[in-house]
Computed example of a mutant assay.
Amino acid sequence: MSDWRNRVFCEDALAGMARIPDASVDLIIADPPYGLGKDYGNDSDKLDADAYLQWMQQWIDAALPKLKSNGSLYIFLTWRYSPEIFVMLKKRMTMINEIVWDRRVPSMGGSTRRFSSVHDTIGFFANARDYYFDLDAVRIPYDAETKKARSRSIFVGAKWLEIGYNPKDVWSVSRLHREHRERADHPTQKPLEIVTRMIKASCPPGGVVLDPFMGSGTTAVAARACGRDFTGFELNPDYCALIRSRLDALDAETAVSGIEQQEKLRASSAS
């Protein structure tokens, strides 16, 4: 089918994955249920360990053929199942990074029988050695103080000093607390900052991002904002409506921004 791009299909990913042509997607960003019993308006996160790992294998088998030969995958996981799932993926792909997302959870008690878990694990995998990766698009600028401290002649003209440094494999980005302006009505919504970094680094402009578990639609919103196409699936009709509303809000914001820019250009030309 030709109308699968820039669509979120309100159906189970396993049932609908055949809609996506093989070898047509540049990047997969997957945020599957973690196997922790979260309430997503259905029983999708209420499997026992064996059934959960079997289901993970099923959707991975269905999704990976959709990737191009130089495509990549990011997958959000927790420490409970990441070892088993990483082994599944390493049989099919090359593991590039294990990324730790530090959710900046404040110290507020917790278990007295173990250390508090305050991070998510993200696996970054690629199909081939020539996988697409644009480091310059996600470099982090140095602050003025750091630049000043590197003012000696040996640093003059250094590209890394001018355009910034490579993000490390620990990403310290606050979780979306209830008062956060980006927060939608979804229990495990991921921050735009994280997903945008993945897309800019691992999907070429005009490329396609597949998200099998769209949830609140962060992947779709980030892809559209970055000039990439998206496609994906979401089982819960309420979340499908939420995704549509977030995309409509982004389109309206973009339209207003474009009008304001045109007005500024006209004013500048008149003066």
Rank of each mutant, 00 (worst) to 15 (best):
S69D: 14
W55K: 02
F86C: 12
W59R: 02
K38D: 10
M56N: 05
K66A: 06
L67N: 05
Q58N: 13
D50K: 13
F76Y: 14
S82I: 07
I60F: 02
K66E: 04
E84H: 12
Q57R: 14
I85V: 14
S72M: 05
K46G: 01
M56D: 00
E84W: 07
I85N: 02
Q54R: 11
D48I: 06
F86A: 14
Y81S: 13
M56Y: 10
I75P: 01
P83E: 11
I85F: 06
F76T: 13
S44D: 11
L64P: 06
I75D: 04
K46T: 08
Q54W: 01
E84F: 11
W55G: 03
Q57Y: 06
L73E: 04
W55E: 09
K38W: 10
E84P: 00
L73Y: 05
P65N: 05
Q58E: 14
N70Q: 13
D43A: 10
W59N: 00
L67I: 04
D45S: 00
Q54M: 09
L64E: 04
L67E: 06
R80I: 11
K68W: 09
Y81H: 15
A51C: 05
S72E: 03
W79S: 15
A51K: 07
S72G: 11
Y40T: 00
W55I: 03
Y81D: 13
G41Y: 02
